[in-house]
Write a protein that binds this DNA or RNA. Structure first.
Lengths: 216, 216
DNA sequence: TACGATTGATTGAATGGTCAGTCAATTAGG
DNA sequence: CCTAATTGACTGACCATTCAATCAATCGTA
């Protein structure tokens, strides 16, 4: 599970790993995991191919480290964005905003995570998924808060949480289209407008309510 | 761009390709593109490895055919679900419902499409993206209809379209979590409830409106 | 009808290239 | 000098792709 290194000096291990993982992230994002060779990674990191294996046991380790980087960035960068915000709605908005911005900063890596999580060993995949759930937990908490204060009605928290996660990830996954039409600011604004403003007009609401009672 | 075959008889080509692509889809979904060998595909399809190359020029062709299958399924199966539905809201609901169900039937293949589209040549990737846009067009049309009839307010159609696409795809992408907690029927119902019912309570709406005017 | 010739499908062994991972030799710094 | 870090040539496996050989079906002709 843990990735082990042959080198003793922990400071050196940290520095070198950072360089290697950065190089790996760049190449994996651009070319994909399987099309990237250790030689390429090493040369981009400015070291020899053999040295990589002093800091990592196998190529798969690099994939784990790269994906972990992304997932941790989410967990690391969202909380500070909420600091000092009390109103539940404001917190929810800030969460969505922060999540989208973290993803925006790491679009390529986010897409990589989607492409490659399945290439991890089952153990490691589960490990990443657990981390992902921890991030989602922050979103769920913000939603639950809103419900507790009666600002949001009792919708399915899991489903809304994933809608938000997917809105954020969607900015990376579909950036080939979205980026040609919107800035991240507009995307966040319009997404929140749909989510919080609701989409129906008063007459739409009447129609929808009628439909619902008909279905009963 | 087109995938060519060495075999003359078009009937045979169609039958064999169907077998080969089905085998490829199954193995690519389970093991990923790069971990799957032509030998495995051939033996699952009940033929020799050499024969595969009579129906396909290279391994990459198989990936294109497999992904095309999925994307086409969307375009093929959504329209019939809308037949005879006139009310714009009902059409929108039916579109979301149909899309989610198509994805549900092809969860593994949908995930595969996300994992592997980047492994296609740029030309082929663009080709698939164009197909995807055609599918999205159906969703956008349903939304635009609702707006035209004043049942939905003037939200950003592109953004809402992608929210819906991602809700549908999300069922496949996050099925490792969602499937343990919901059935597809519940997922569709709860997603629509959030989307159409809106999430805010009256007091939430007041709060949100106040926030918006403050921002101006 | 019979049977050699032709065509096209099919097989699977052989080829060639690629790369992950290893290790003996070299370097640097303490 | 030691010792840990570093190099890069090397190895062994693996696998996409090719191709010579086989097989089955159909055709043409007597």
């Amino acid at each position: 599970m843990q990735v082990t290194s042959m080198v003793e000096d922990p400071e050196l291990v940290q520095r070198r790993r950072k360089e290697i993982v950065a190089a790996a992230a760049e190449l994996f994002s651009k070319q994909g995991f399987y099309r990237t060779t250790i030689k390429e990674i090493a040369s981009l990191a400015g070291i020899s191919s053999g040295l990589v294996y002093q800091y990592v046991r196998e190529k798969d380790d690099l994939l784990l480290l790269v994906i972990l980087e992304v997932v941790d960035a989410y967990a690391r960068e969202i909380p500070p964005a909420l600091a000092g915000i009390d109103d539940p709605i404001e917190r929810l908005v800030a969460t969505v905003d922060a999540y989208c911005r973290v993803v925006d900063k790491r679009r390529a890596a986010t897409v990589l995570a989607y492409r490659s999580t399945k290439s991890l060993s089952p153990d490691r995949r589960r490990f990443i998924q657990r981390r992902e759930l921890e991030t989602n937990q922050m979103i769920s908490a913000a939603i639950a808060d809103c419900i507790r204060s009666r600002l949001v009605r009792k919708i399915n928290v899991d489903v809304l949480t994933y809608q938000i996660v997917l809105i954020a990830h969607g900015w990376a996954l579909k950036s080939w289209y979205l980026k040609t039409r919107l800035s991240i600011e507009q995307y966040i604004r319009d997404s929140l407008d749909i989510l919080l403003g609701g989409i129906l007009t008063p007459s739409g609401r009447r129609r929808y309510a009628a439909r619902k009672s008909r279905r009963k």
